[in-house]
Design a protein around this nucleic acid. Sequence first.
DNA 1: GTGAAAGCGCTAACAA
DNA 2: TTGTTAGCGCTTTCAC
Lengths: 345, 345
Amino acid sequence: MPDPGEETDMSAVRHVAPTLEMVAARAGVSRATVSRVVNGSDKVNPASVESVRAAISELGYVPNRAARSLASAQSHAIALVVPEDITRFFGDVFFASIVAGINDRLEQSDYVLNLMVASSDPGAKNSRYLMGGAVDGAVVVSHHTSDHFLERIGDAIPLVFGGRPGLDKIDTWVVDVDNEEGGAVAASRLVERGCRHVATISGPTDMQSANERTRGWRRVVAAAGLEPGPAISGDFTALGGAQAMRELLARYPEVDGVFVASDLMASAALPVLLDSGRRIPEDVAVVGYDDSPHAVQGPVQLTTVKQPSEAMGREMADILLDVLAGNERPWSTILPIELVERDSA
Amino acid sequence: MPDPGEETDMSAVRHVAPTLEMVAARAGVSRATVSRVVNGSDKVNPASVESVRAAISELGYVPNRAARSLASAQSHAIALVVPEDITRFFGDVFFASIVAGINDRLEQSDYVLNLMVASSDPGAKNSRYLMGGAVDGAVVVSHHTSDHFLERIGDAIPLVFGGRPGLDKIDTWVVDVDNEEGGAVAASRLVERGCRHVATISGPTDMQSANERTRGWRRVVAAAGLEPGPAISGDFTALGGAQAMRELLARYPEVDGVFVASDLMASAALPVLLDSGRRIPEDVAVVGYDDSPHAVQGPVQLTTVKQPSEAMGREMADILLDVLAGNERPWSTILPIELVERDSA
DNA sequence: GTGAAAGCGCTAACAA
DNA sequence: TTGTTAGCGCTTTCAC
């Protein structure tokens, strides 16, 4: 109860939430009937529906979530779990698209979304939240192989991963693009335009998807009879991209083609390249990844591999909702990637 | 008497969540004792604590949130409500700082955070969530005067606003900077450096904070004996900033000083100014607002009014937690702003 | 179509 | 210190 304005100030007094029982009394029916109306049962006398509806709006009744959840063993909430720190979450538009996609799907349901962004978990608070029945299931994106806490959560509630988790357990739902194919498409573009010294700036090596892109890149470069250049690991941030490019130029100055595994990193790497006196794409061709807004905000319009991130979000939510409804869905869903051609390669 | 701790539990089976009762049986104590241990009561025999702890970890017990919440009338969760659409939420680092600040404060508590981003509320789903006891309180940022649903929520749970709400009710907690002072500081800078034709690109006119900044700007310009130039309303997005600047130049070509009410808008407005052949700050001086990363990412380093956004987030969370704990806090908390001097003015 | 009654898993008085 | 006993507000059989 709030502090200011004791009994004198009625307006500041916090509302005492009306219960189902109060509605029932007001409408002159049983609690069971009210419950039926609230939950949209069709087996209720129209007259009763009428009076219950009236009582509900008169009293301003809102069902208590905890009680409902306890009785029905369902929370009607799902979580989006992002094991990253806030800065990276907000810094990468990939997440924005994912959230938009999930939200879009959820709007057509009666589920709400809980965002759970945390690289560390002090006191395992978030794990307990997820396992304590606060949500019926979760979507997990940007998953690292070191995030073992997810395994425990995974056998308490259904989890849908965005990008393949590097875990042993594979009996879990995954929505992904063919990352290896993505890396291959990028490398092909470079090779086909005549690059002979092709390197890559990859994502973190503890991320499955990053490694797959690198693998695709390497395969195509080797298949073209070229010696693959260095694969420098970045961290999917702008700063990391610039730094990786500097390192690349130092170690491999003859580079004439680079696949950078995210547009965000690429957008920061481009200026480094230009500052070194190289022209893009004449001296060094660059292919990015994501087709995020960063692709067109830098000094050179980025040729890039497009990920359908919003569609991924929508698909993940769709699968989770379907599974929660008791339907079957295949473990794996692969969405198509495509090359978007611009100026950098 | 449910069977306590069967033998080897196979892994593929999902979710037979152990209850407090099972822990009690396993540990050979009453449910009340287990509850006391779980909630860290000090009045428990160390030996009992020991055996309860053992039983908990053996069974992998996690308390059911719904049950706990129902019985204690507390959810131990708070919400951050952002009445904006996803794109704007992710596009503005102001929100990132707010979330970081809130998170930072929450990590020292046993509360979890629910992010609730939605400009529209289909089926009043989110309102029902907030009012149904799913959270104990909420922090609201980026509030528009048209967001009336918050009034109803406000008398169900305590609300802490970031930025003064334009609502009638003023008996609610608010953490804010002195926006009028901010606008005044910006305008002073412009006037002092000799600008004679001072305009502003403001935020949306349905946002209290935006109007206050404009008021401060107008006051100072008028006090300097100058005729205030146009106040063009932007929407706090990059696109909106560029557009507003184009409109400003068309309507008021003699402009030589502009206060742009957010760095994000300013960063998009600068190129428009440069493209028009004007030099910054020689021909047109620009002062931004926020001191966000955008301030230093554009073609000219932005002189700007710094808002302590992370501190605001932390302060809001601190107040809410304090209020929930039954303590008194003053309705209003004003955090200081300051001018950060760079190149644009 | 409607109501009565039995819980869901937990906390909180009150006894012991 | 510990256990016993009521509920928290809702859903859900199961009779009627």
